[in-house]
Amino acid sequence: MKTHASVAGKIALSFVMVMVVMIIVSFIFAAIGVARGMNLAELEASIGESLLVQYLQMILFIASSYAMYAFFERKKGWAIGLRQRRGAAYALHGAVAGIILISASAVLVWAFGGVSWQWAEWDQEMLVPMLKGVLLFVGVAVSEEIYSRGYVQGLLRHHYGSTTAIVVSSVLFALLHSLNPGMFSSPLPVINLIMAGVIMAVAREVTGGLWWPIGLHLTWNYFQGYIYGFNVSGTTRDYSLLHTVDQGPAWLSGGGFGLEGSALSIVLLILGTIAVYMMYRNKNKKIDADSVSSLLK
């Protein structure tokens, strides 16, 4: 029981540290907004859309992960996973996998009539926000992977083994998105995010580091939003190469949550998880492949 309480307490503390700072920053933003005469709706929009707030949250999740690791875990023999041999190659593999999976999901939703597409008229104004989108999703991928797969999964794996670490870290990863618009509009967004967590958690196990999941996380988000024009976990983008028109039932198109609200994405994520395990299971001899295998049976 002491171990359970200790692990749960460390995970809770790592999250609370981030939230306390974010609440303080939000109050500061709100005070500035009130001084400028903003109403409640304008304040919420200003804080929610602020890139400064978004980047601060990413930095805080990274800082929290490394602070907790440095204080409690550094001498216990497990690593967060950024120092990985052939990390660049694994990141590229993950990025290609992310493009394939999100493209297959988008095309299948389109083929079954869930959405229609129109090409956007390209102009110079699109270039800057699309480049900013790359930076944004790089930050999202790195911060969420360091926290969810690096610290949380690493901590759980050290105490309970790979299978428990994959399952629990994936559920917690989904819950991190609880405040996203439409997250609980149906069970599908929750299941999708859990399965997204699973494929990245399995990849972290069988490749031995974080770079494969970081690559997948980046391209999955970027292509979903800025190329195919879907909402990304309920959040909207200002520009995309394709304009998406939702014309099918939400279980097919994903509705306002984006492709991560579609049943088809769940199927592809399950198939992708099996493919990742089969491709990499023998390439890192230090991984407890039997534990991962038990999850996939």
Rank of each mutant, 00 (worst) to 15 (best):
G94V: 14
A141Q: 05
S233L: 10
W122M: 15
N180L: 11
V96F: 14
S291N: 08
G254W: 05
W110P: 01
Y222K: 04
W251N: 05
L136R: 04
Y69M: 05
T235D: 02
V96R: 13
L271E: 04
S65Q: 14
F184Y: 14
M19N: 13
G133N: 02
G139W: 03
I80P: 00
D246F: 09
T164R: 12
S6D: 14
G248F: 09
H243T: 11
F71L: 10
A196V: 03
F72P: 01
S178A: 11
S65K: 11
V18G: 00
L295T: 13
F257A: 02
S103W: 01
G225V: 03
I274N: 09
G139E: 06
G113K: 03
I11G: 13
G272M: 04
Y226E: 02
K285M: 10
I100L: 05
P181L: 06
V198R: 10
V190M: 09
W211C: 13
L210F: 12
I287G: 12
I99F: 08
S50P: 01
F223N: 04
S46H: 05
S162E: 10
L40W: 12
L131M: 07
S50Q: 00
W110M: 07
L259H: 00
I227P: 00
K283G: 15
I99C: 12
E144L: 05
V206L: 12
I214S: 00
M279G: 03
Q247S: 12
G37D: 12
M19T: 15
L135P: 07
S26P: 05
Q247K: 12
S291M: 08
G94E: 13
L40P: 10
M278P: 10
A30P: 08
H158M: 07
M278F: 15
G154D: 00
M58T: 12
Y160I: 00
D290W: 03
A106S: 06
G114K: 01
L82T: 03
L135Y: 05
R86S: 03
Y90R: 10
D246Y: 10
V167G: 10
W110I: 04
V206K: 13
R36N: 15
M22Y: 03
G256K: 11
A70R: 08
M130N: 02
I166H: 08
L179P: 07
K285N: 08
I23A: 06
N284R: 12
G215A: 02
I166Q: 08
K297D: 15
E145Y: 10
R157P: 08
R149M: 08
K285S: 15
A63D: 03
G150I: 01
G150D: 05
G197S: 10
I80S: 04
V167L: 13
L92K: 14
A41C: 11
